[in-house]
Computed example of a mutant assay.
Amino acid sequence: MNVNLHSFPIHENTVTLSCPSSGPSKKCYVYLVPVVHTKEKSRRDVETALYHLRPQSVFLECYLEPKFYSYFHEGCEQGYAFKIAKALEMEIIFGDICDRSLKTCEDRKLDELRLRYGFEKDNDMELRDMAHDMAFYDVRDLIMITRLWDHAKTRSSIVAIVGEDHIYGMRHYWRLMELGSSRVLKEAAKYEEYIRQHQPPTQLNHF
């Protein structure tokens, strides 16, 4: 269900996206709720969004392994969203990549930059910093939004709780996919495959 966000005191920069869905409504609405990690206002924004929008699913900017369970109950906005979603019996989707996978993507990006610009491995500290930033923001934006897109194709509504620095990039990639660009999905698939080849199998994507 599409909701007029101006009717509720939801974060003013919340982004509404949509795509066709095989679910009963034939369309899924996705709400990107921007948060500043560990800020009290973000906890309030999360609470308002989930109680007012009542989505079918909640998408979190985190990767869960069993040893991290306690993290989601301690007070950060992701943990707060987890607790509310559990209480309201909403599906929870863990959509980010873990630190190991991030390092894998960083190494891949570094190799690409070296090849493109002809840097030697012993003289690329600045290039390594660039690769880290590109992996931390752009690659994660790409992976999270394509995972979100994939989930949205079978659901009716999803609220995604993501850091405000990811909103622009994720919205940009979504718009490209809406316009029919296959390059976004192919690029994401390349990184997903690279992660699978270099990391242990994902232990949990859903709770």
Rank of each mutant, 00 (worst) to 15 (best):
F119C: 04
E120P: 00
E120Q: 03
D122E: 12
D122R: 00
N123A: 13
N123V: 03
N123T: 07
N123M: 06
N123R: 13
D124E: 14
M125G: 00
M125L: 11
E126W: 04
L127C: 07
R128V: 01
R128C: 03
R128G: 01
R128K: 15
R128Q: 14
D129W: 03
D129V: 02
M130E: 15
M130F: 07
M130P: 00
M130D: 10
A131G: 06
A131R: 06
A131Q: 05
H132P: 00
H132A: 14
D133F: 04
D133E: 10
D133K: 11
M134H: 10
M134S: 12
A135L: 04
A135K: 01
A135S: 15
F136K: 13
F136R: 10
F136M: 03
F136A: 12
V139D: 00
V139F: 02
R140F: 06
R140W: 06
D141P: 03
D141H: 15
D141Q: 08
L142A: 07
I145R: 01
I145V: 15
T146C: 14
T146P: 07
L148I: 04
L148Y: 03
L148P: 02
W149M: 06
W149D: 11
W149K: 09
D150M: 07
D150T: 15
D150K: 15
H151I: 01
A152K: 08
A152V: 11
A152C: 09
A152W: 08
K153W: 02
K153E: 14
T154E: 15
R155M: 14
S156A: 10
S156W: 05
S157V: 08
S157M: 10
S157D: 14
S157C: 11
S157L: 12
I158V: 08
I158H: 06
V159L: 13
V159S: 09
A160H: 07
A160F: 08
I161L: 10
G163Y: 07
E164P: 00
E164Q: 12
E164D: 13
D165M: 09
D165G: 13
D165C: 08
H166F: 12
H166T: 08
H166C: 07
I167N: 08
I167H: 09
Y168T: 12
Y168S: 13
Y168R: 13
G169C: 07
M170G: 07
M170Q: 13
M170I: 06
R171Q: 14
R171P: 00
R171W: 01
R171A: 11
H172R: 15
H172C: 10
Y173Q: 02
Y173G: 02
Y173R: 07
Y173V: 04
Y173T: 03
R175W: 02
R175H: 11
R175L: 14
L176P: 01
L176R: 14
L176W: 07
M177T: 08
E178G: 01
E178W: 08
E178M: 12
L179I: 02
L179Y: 05
L179P: 00
L179M: 15
G180V: 04
S181I: 03
S181R: 04
V184C: 10
V184Y: 05
V184H: 07
L185D: 00
E187Q: 08
E187N: 03
A188T: 11
A188P: 12
A189G: 15
K190G: 05
K190L: 09
Y191C: 03
E192N: 05
E192F: 14
E192V: 05
E192R: 09
E192D: 12
E192K: 07
E193P: 01
E193G: 01
I195K: 09
R196L: 12
